[in-house]
Nucleic acid binder design. Structure first.
Lengths: 200, 200
DNA sequence: ATCAATAGCGAACGCACGTACGCTATTGTT
DNA sequence: AACAATAGCGTACGTGCGTTCGCTATTGAT
């Protein structure tokens, strides 16, 4: 009753599935993704959805990857034109605050949510979460290191401490937005990040 | 085949269930709690477990409450003997770092985990999470306010900013421990909290 | 023109879930 | 001594899950 589609159309279908899955996962977690529910909302059959990934675990990981790629495209890549070091770092911080304040997904940042959802559950999903999270950390660390090398930050500057505090501000911002819709939180996060860069 | 137990024994059973449920939830989330699994691991029947709470949602909320009460007993109440204000606040910060570093539950702080698990899912569980989280926030805020009133912190001190940064450090510490077992994280969290108290 | 490859469907599977009901045997009150 | 209350069990029910299998009809390479 439903004929095979072209390879190009299949890619579109796959994208539709991942898009819906990411929206669901951002609100209910990667475990909230359900093949039956996706099939319902996308008006296709369960087996049709399933075929694209073969395994629910693969679907979850693909969803996480998709969300991360979208974030990267919209909030990291634009910053890469900036001068590496303190300038670029500040833009990245600002972009991440904007992202966490008005996320691409209805339930907020999927990576942040998946972090605590899967930190205690070994397996491929957890590995994917850790990898994606590390990539974001590395991006920030790289610019911190460059900033020190270029003398934009004092030579005795504690890069790891600053990184810790920047990530911390992101976590707190995410929680404040998702839990309490605290409109003051973005400003506090910005200030906290700025303070992280001005070590005594 | 299994006769009724005394009311006292029933309380013990209830505590056993909650204890096991909290351990599971700390690793797999409040949704990881399953009546069948609890029955298995506690060697009782599903209906036996069920009867104590009547509803899975009630079981989840009870589990969260139990975890919070345990935390409160072990890490907050001992600090209440301290002088209110900056002294007590520092003890609370230190205690929370110790708690997040070596939690009472195998999967880390259940409240922190539940925060992002349920922030996008309206309902009684979410309400319970918010309430419990607010109580912890209030405790910290109260001592910050006292510290300002008593002149232990400058009059222009931004209490909400400091609170934001203290909570932020907790989030980051939790993530670093649960995700990467980062042994340097407790020190960084302590430093970040101390910096939060020394606004420029 | 031929034909292997495949997107998507429909139906079925075994399993685990939360919940409901009735029962039993002890408790603890009267 | 009598008896309502109840901790916990056993069984069952309906639902939704991930996955499997066979099918159909188009695509796209040969």
């Amino acid at each position: 009753m439903s004929p095979r589609r072209s390879a190009a159309e299949a890619l579109v279908t796959r994208a539709r599935i991942l898009s819906r899955a990411a929206a669901i996962a951002s609100e209910e977690g990667l475990d909230g993704i359900t093949i039956g529910r996706l099939a319902d909302e996308l008006e296709m059959s369960k087996s049709g959805v399933h075929k694209h990934f073969g395994t629910k675990e693969t679907l979850q990981i693909s969803t996480l990857d998709k969300a991360f790629v979208d974030f990267w495209h919209q909030f990291v890549e634009p910053a890469l034109t900036e001068q590496p070091g303190l300038r670029r770092l500040r833009v990245l911080c600002d972009n991440s605050v904007r992202y966490l304040t008005e996320p691409l997904l209805p339930g907020g940042c999927l990576v942040t949510a998946s972090l605590s959802e899967y930190d205690g559950r070994p397996g491929a999903v957890r590995d994917a979460v850790v990898e994606v999270w590390s990539r974001w950390q590395e991006q920030l660390r790289a610019d911190l290191v460059v900033a020190v090398e270029r003398g934009e930050l004092p030579g005795r500057f504690d890069v790891e401490q600053a990184l810790f505090e920047i990530l911390a501000a992101g976590f707190a911002l995410n929680a404040a937005m998702q839990l309490q819709h605290d409109q003051a939180a973005p400003g506090r996060a910005r200030l906290a990040m700025e303070r992280a860069l001005s070590q005594p």
